[in-house]
């Protein structure tokens, strides 16, 4: 059991980060405020988790202007997607093991 847990990507230990990855995996891109609403977290909390995910290369930030308003949106990277998929498979295996 110990080595299976070791297998778990550190980034997915946090519920908020896993939530961010779930939303980004299901959408082409997502803006900060919608993410905040979906995950029901504070600005600071979300920003720090996003920064960590960006640093590890799982999330890409795209800054643009809509009219005069700056708009920041977030995208999942190819690496982030494969890590997320692996994590899902890992969870599914755990569930299967628990059942048998």
């Amino acid at each position: 059991m110990k080595d299976i847990i070791h297998n778990l990507n550190k980034q997915f230990e946090s519920r908020v980060r896993l939530g961010i990855m779930s939303v980004l995996a299901a959408n082409d891109e997502m803006d900060f405020n919608t993410l905040k609403e979906l995950l029901d977290v504070t600005d600071g909390n979300l920003a720090s988790h996003l920064a960590a995910l960006e640093k590890s290369g799982m999330v890409e930030v795209r800054k643009q202007f809509i009219g005069r308003k700056p708009n920041t949106s977030y995208l999942i990277t190819a690496y982030g997607r494969s890590a997320f998929r692996e994590h899902l498979e890992f969870l599914a295996r755990l569930v299967k093991q628990g059942k048998s």
Binding site: R15, L18, S22, V23, L91, G98
Partner: peptide, 21 residues
């Protein structure tokens, strides 16, 4: 940092978020 729940709960939450979003 909030600790992760059981795998089955985690999977449910992921599914719900992906769907809801």
């Amino acid at each position: 940092m909030e600790k992760n729940q059981e795998p089955i709960q985690q999977l449910n939450e992921i599914r719900s978020l992906m769907e809801r979003s």
